[in-house]
């Protein structure tokens, strides 16, 4: 494995650890409620009533699916672009920097 690939893998491991370690250390005692929801609950407890409701509120499971869809669309496009860029580099024998007009 090249040094570059190794560093990339280490970054991925660091990111995973950053979010996995709190989960493990915590031992399942926290709810991990969203901060957005925490604020609305607090405001409602203080007596605020929202004056407008979402036009469309998906049920819990559907909402998870739509969030997954959003992530999938983004990841798909990102993967497509990075794959194309990599393919372009590995397909051209000359270094891309030399092909740049400036």
């Amino acid at each position: 494995m090249s040094r570059r690939a190794l560093v990339n893998v280490l970054i991925v491991v660091a990111v995973v650890a950053l979010f996995a370690v709190p989960l493990l250390v915590d031992g399942g005692t926290s709810e991990y409620g969203g901060t957005d929801a925490a604020v609305t609950e607090e405001l409602e407890a203080d007596g605020y009533t929202p004056w407008f409701d979402s036009l469309f509120s998906p049920a819990g499971e559907v909402e998870s699916g739509l969030f997954a869809l959003q992530a999938a669309l983004g990841a798909g496009v990102l993967g497509y672009v990075l794959g194309r860029l990599r393919g372009r580099r590995t397909a051209t024998p000359t270094a891309p920097a030399e092909a740049d007009p400036r």
């Binding site: 979010f19 926290s30 959003q70 992530a71 669309l73 983004g74 496009v77 990102l78």
Partner: peptide
């Protein structure tokens, strides 16, 4: 796409 993916994910 980067902002699309990341803003869809809730992280602990």
């Amino acid at each position: 796409a980067f902002t699309f993916v990341l803003s869809a994910i809730k992280l602990p």
